[in-house]
Nucleic acid binder design. Structure first.
Lengths: 222, 222
DNA sequence: TAGATTGTTAATCGATTAACAATC
DNA sequence: TAGATTGTTAATCGATTAACAATC
């Protein structure tokens, strides 16, 4: 089964929309409703579900609770994912402060920074010297790391993380990181996103034609 | 000509790689070299250039300076793009502090926040009360806005921006924003990116197979 | 039953890649 | 010239969409 990024992001969005619909009192749902809620076609919804082995009933649609359970299982929400963050600048702090991770089974268990001012071993999420990162990752068997350090330091941090056993890296430094085949590196470049927005906005301004902004990582919503 | 997001992002990456190659002393370049530098195929490079009307010489490759000029023109770097940021929390601050916008012809000219502590009309980039945003956008004819406010406030801020004439919005709030057809809305959801990284890292851990993480917004690099 | 909805197969669409003629 | 490189056309690939049989 070919699973691409867009497909997984759709699963996340279905899940989020379903929580919302559930809170509105829905108990079952049709592919049609869910499609409207997420902004895709009903066929897409059924196709995605079918690909992942989720089925409903021919006339009765899908039970929301079953669906949520299935999606959570597929998305790995049945276990807590421990994450460390390297670089406690603005973006690192934003992540440490974000309150919504718990319900996604994500737990940021430590931050690391080279700057002693940022360090705080007693915080709700402790921040340690970057030199301690490798040992920490090993001892806690961390598999996911976020890199939010300046670009010149990013590759070295990535190497250290990988050496210590990390298998997935979310990188905010504006440079491409290299790693072995069996490590997933997801690069998010905020400047490039802004440049892109400007490009397509200008295209609209100049031509009146709506640009094909088919973002891969659009957020969810109903 | 169909221009999709990935294609424009590749143009940005070519440009960045070319600056790098130029600083290394290169004067001309072959599609092959550039492809290696950016991590795509040589055919892709030539195809992209051909689509945008950029041509080289049959045997001599491309002049780097010409190429950079062409790409900058295509990417709209021949004029300054003024941007405002709503919400001066962690992400908003990260953007206001970022020093690399000038060489991309992007200028953040003001921030807006509801919190008086964040406001500072005398700063290098001034931060005004959010109530003043609409007028400011109108008077300065701003076309691009960044939204970094909490999710419950995001749609209202977007509406205000659009009403005042903004044509492109980069949204960091974790919810889908709605707007008219002729406004480009680029949603970047950091939590979803982390979830995604975890998903594919787990797939690697469990199956040993490398996930198809075809991120749309990978950063540049040589 | 008749109508509605799922699940799947086939068709379409778009983007990437391969092949290769043109030509410097 | 011979070899190398561009620019473009055709082939491939994958994802989305349309069509529709199965069936509740």
């Amino acid at each position: 089964m070919k699973t691409n990024k867009n497909c997984v992001i759709r699963l996340s969005r279905y899940k989020n929309a379903l929580y919302r619909l559930k809170s509105l009192g829905f108990v079952k749902i049709f592919s049609d409703n869910l499609a409207d809620a997420v902004g895709v076609t009903a066929t897409q919804v059924r196709k995605d579900f079918s690909q992942f082995g989720i089925s409903g009933t021919r006339k009765g649609g899908y039970q929301i609770d079953d669906l949520i359970n299935n999606l959570n299982r597929l998305l790995g929400k049945d276990e807590i994912h421990k994450v460390v963050v390297a670089g406690i600048g603005n973006i690192g702090t934003a992540l440490l402060n974000y309150k919504g991770f718990e319900k996604e089974s994500i737990k940021i268990i430590a931050g690391f920074d080279i700057n002693t001012v940022k360090q705080n071993a007693a915080g709700e999420i402790p921040v340690f010297p970057i030199a301690e990162m490798e040992n920490f990752i090993r001892q806690n068997q961390i598999k996911i790391g976020v890199i939010a350090v300046p670009d010149f330091a990013a590759q070295q941090i990535a190497d250290t993380m990988i050496q210590a056993g990390v298998k997935g890296i979310l990188n905010f430094a504006p440079m491409r990181l290299h790693g072995p085949e069996n490590v997933v590196i997801n690069n998010v470049n905020l400047v490039l996103e802004l440049e892109n927005t400007i490009y397509f906005a200008n295209a609209v301004i100049k031509t009146g034609v709506v640009g094909q902004l088919t973002a891969s990582a659009q957020p969810d919503g109903v």
